[in-house]
Amino acid sequence: MKVDHSQPLEYSTEQNRLNILGFWIFLGAEIMLFGTLFTCYFTLVNRTSDGPIGAEIFEITPVLMETFLLLTSSFVIGLGIHAMRLGNKKAMQAFFILTLLLGIGFLAFEITEFITYYEEGATLQTSAFTSILFTTLGTHGAHVSLGLFWGLFIILQVRKRGITPVTANKSFIFSLYWHFLDVVWIFIFTFIYMKGLTQL
């Protein structure tokens, strides 16, 4: 592997540059994926049948907590990447661990939120609206869950192998993924929760 030292570590080899470009393209596909989900959501949002409408089940507090946790985690992983560029392995690991903890917090809130919906009678099968609601949120949640494992693996690798072109590349790509999930959440927050809550 030829290492180009004029570049940041994560860009320093040809394969690293390919990986990052490839991942950006993958994120393009992910945008289409979530874009489709949002389109379906907008199409089905009023098709509530006998079930509740958004305003009847959404609660602002857990949603704000989820938003706060995920946005903070996105900021923290930015700090982690900064630490990585400075070569500070300890700080980087600490920030990554904090990111994942915030992610776990987000998931915990989301799971309780889902349980509340079920208790209120809004299940996956209630209406077209609840089906698409759970599917959209669930797809995002599944991405976060997958990200938790991925992030954990990266932390373990950095701990064992240090900050190398390979691990730096992986960490950087993971941070892109995590920021992306944050962006998707902002859309969910705005167009599903805020719009839903103002429905009454």
Binding site: D50, K195, T198
Partner: peptide, 16 residues
């Protein structure tokens, strides 16, 4: 059956 409920929902959603 259940038309009454429907009307309520329709009202809800149409005001958004």
């Amino acid at each position: 059956n259940g038309n009454q409920e429907h009307d309520v929902h329709e009202h809800d959603t149409s005001t958004s």
